[in-house]
């Protein structure tokens, strides 16, 4: 198992290197530079700035400087916020994004599986159809539309929850952003669970269990849920990554200082170091999450290990 995990980790290094290289050169192809703006700077000052950040050197030399720095764990300076290095900024934003993403991950898993199992047990009943319809809306209505609607209803009209921000970090500030982040995933997980649960309930093992006169709950918990969870688990790897990127929208609408917001601002401001730093960071995070899911998967289903 440890060897398996280690091998997986080793393969991530070339991937990271390729991604950094591609990003680095793509970024430089983009028109506009970090020091262009509505108040154009005189050439002399632009030259000072370029020299300050090594941008006056040949591109290939800049590339080697950058890769060298990354190897030493230094993600370099940020052009848009010179008071912080890229690593410092990411360290500040990380907890917010992790708390938000982690909560959303957990909530969508619990609610998604619950709806899926319920739907499978009461398949084709009215509650099943109604739940399916509600869940489907979560999938097709874009998050940037759901968010302001929820703010309006729960923040302003009912006055139950804060409209935005992180405040004192209490749960009430998390409810709306986590909901928005969850909805599409609840939809996907519940659809997946329902499908595989129906399949599991139709299997011979379950029929035997029914014939033995076991209760519904016992059958679901002991026999059906575990095989039914396998396809759901394989969805969780990419979903974890997507929750992080989904926070792009949620963080900017709710004004939460996570990492998602940095990326877009940095790309728009041609903050090369920050863009690369965010990409590297997200990739490592997604890879680690995928790895965890894989290990969990292997633990649940021994066949994967032997393969």
């Amino acid at each position: 198992m440890i060897k398996y995990a280690f091998n997986r980790l080793l393969t991530t290094i070339p991937v990271l290197w390729i991604a950094i290289t591609v990003c680095f050169f793509i970024l430089r192809m983009a028109p506009g530079g970090p020091f262009d703006g509505d108040r154009p700077l005189p050439e002399a000052i632009k030259a000072n700035l370029a020299a300050h950040y090594n941008l006056d050197k040949p591109l290939i030399e800049q590339y080697f400087i950058y890769v060298g720095n990354v190897l030493q764990g230094n993600l370099g300076p940020s052009f848009t916020t010179p008071d912080f290095t890229v690593s410092e900024q990411l360290a500040v934003g990380l907890p917010y994004t992790l708390i938000l993403g982690g909560a959303a991950f957990f909530v969508s898993l619990v609610i998604g599986v619950a709806i899926g199992v319920y739907g499978a047990l009461k398949r084709n009943s009215y509650p099943d159809h109604i739940l399916a319809a509600i869940v489907l809306m979560g999938l097709v209505v874009p998050g940037f539309l759901v968010a302001p609607i929820l703010q309006l209803i729960f923040g302003l009209k009912l006055n139950w929850l804060p409209v935005g921000g992180w405040g004192d970090g209490s749960i009430s500030y998390l409810v709306l952003p986590v909901t928005v982040l969850c909805l599409p995933h609840i939809a996907r997980i519940s659809r997946l669970t329902r499908g595989s649960m129906i399949e599991a309930l139709n299997s011979n093992a379950i029929r035997t269990a029914y014939s033995k006169g076991l209760s519904d709950t016992a059958i679901v918990w002991r026999h059906a849920l575990r095989p039914a969870m396998m396809p759901v688990l394989s969805y969780l790897g990419p979903a974890a990554g997507f929750l992080l990127t989904g926070s792009l929208v949620v963080e900017s609408i709710f004004g939460i200082p996570g990492i998602g917001r940095y990326f877009i601002n940095a790309a728009l401001n041609r903050d090369y170091g920050m863009v690369l730093g965010t990409v590297v960071f997200y990739m490592v995070l997604i890879m680690v999450l995928n790895l965890l899911v894989d290990i969990f998967y292997a633990w649940l289903d021994p066949r994967v290990r032997t393969r």
């Binding site: 393969t11 991530t12 070339p14 991937v15 390729i18 991604a19 990003c23 793509i26 970024l27 192809m29 983009a30 028109p31 990419p238 990554g241 997507f242 992080l244 990127t245 792009l248 990326f263 877009i264 790309a267 728009l268 863009v275 965010t278 990409v279 997200y282 990739m283 997604i286 890879m287 995928n290």
Partner: peptide, 18 residues
Amino acid sequence: DIMYALPYILFVILLMVI
């Protein structure tokens, strides 16, 4: 497999910038 590991939406945004 390698391509799967890339944070896809970030690349789309970068492409959009270009």
